[in-house]
């Protein structure tokens, strides 16, 4: 009974880390970024590249099957992924914004990017599954009948640290305030002297960095595949919509609901339908609460 709660929280942590980027582009750039999944994928593959460049394996930290080599690789991969995302914004989204293209055009561009990204990864890194390192996960019984791999604790811990850092950034720094201001009222933000272009750059950097963390941890827990991020897209979107789209904390709550739903589906033997069940839950919530769980009525 408790086992699926534990599994659900781990998958919620990964979904939330990825979905923060979707939530931020949704609120600041104002479109649903269908390419977010590929940002996770690219982040995970950059991490792989760095792990092999450092050449020290992924290390260990006590019982946890990854350590400093992987964490350092992730940090560098965050930077590399951010650069890629900023270049893509500069080449594609910036001209579309300047032309005041419809939101739908941005979504379509993102949809195209998603496909291109997946296939570029296939071309460059190959389509076969890859791994950071070989390890045998050892589960520990934390409660009677509830077994968790120490790595899962580490993942939840990293996610909590990331959310706390994000919270401090959004509430305690000037750029965080500026981002919230642009998300609420872009015109007033400009009148106020906020350079929206700088805010947009930070939006991409934060979204891409957290997505890299999500992608790398997901890859560590499972495997690297070109479709790994794309498979996360629907759960991430569902978390965004469930949480009420306009609210970062709502997205985290939404991820929790989605993670637990997925875990229940798996425990009922419906693993194959996981994404479809997530989607149904999202539709049902939308039917009764169009503004999402924490959203405000427009």
């Amino acid at each position: 009974m408790m086992q699926f709660v534990a599994d659900g929280i781990v998958s919620a942590a990964l979904i939330a880390l990825g979905a923060i980027g979707i939530s931020m582009t949704y609120n600041i750039l104002r479109f649903a970024n269908f390419a977010q999944g590929e940002i996770l994928t690219i982040g995970a593959y950059f991490t792989l590249l760095l792990v092999s460049l450092i050449g020290a394996g992924i290390g260990t930290l006590g019982p946890v099957a990854f350590g400093w080599p992987l964490l350092v690789s992730i940090v560098f991969a965050m930077a590399a992924t951010s650069v890629v995302v900023l270049v893509v914004d500069w080449l594609l989204f910036r001209p579309l914004r300047n032309r005041k293209a419809a939101r739908i055009t941005l979504i379509m561009a993102a949809f195209g990017l998603s496909l291109m990204g997946r296939n570029l990864v296939t071309l460059i890194a190959g389509g076969e599954p890859q791994y950071y390192a070989f390890f045998i996960p050892k589960a520990i019984e934390i409660l009677p009948g509830v077994r968790l791999v120490p790595d899962d604790f580490a993942i939840i811990g990293i996610a909590i640290i990331a959310f706390a850092a994000l919270f401090l950034f959004m509430n305690r720094t000037s750029m965080g305030r500026q981002m919230r201001a642009v998300s609420e009222n872009p015109t007033l933000a400009r009148i106020n002297g906020i350079d929206v272009r700088a805010v947009i750059r930070w939006t991409w950097i934060i979204g891409a960095s957290l997505a890299t963390v999500a992608g790398a941890l997901l890859a560590h827990n499972t495997q690297l595949r070109p479709e790994m991020g794309f498979d996360m897209l629907l759960p991430m979107f569902a978390a965004l919509i469930l949480g009420g789209a306009s609210n970062l904390y709502g997205t985290i709550l939404g991820a929790l609901v989605i993670g637990l739903t997925e875990a229940i589906a798996v425990s009922l033997g419906l693993a194959g339908y996981r994404a479809a069940i997530t989607f149904m839950v999202m539709l049902i919530v939308l039917l009764f609460r169009p503004q999402g769980l924490l959203g405000e009525k427009e």
């Binding site: 949704y26 479109f31 649903a32 269908f34 939101r103 739908i104 979504i107 897209l233 629907l234 979107f237 569902a238 919509i241 789209a245 194959g272 339908y273 994404a275 479809a276 989607f279 149904m280 999202m282 539709l283 939308l286 039917l287 169009p290």
Partner: peptide, 26 residues
Amino acid sequence: ITLRLREDFLAISTFGIGLSIQLVAL
């Protein structure tokens, strides 16, 4: 369910339909 909401929600929901149908088929 979704046509009353913001246009992005239709995009996301139809994307979900596409994936779900594939899962059902599979």
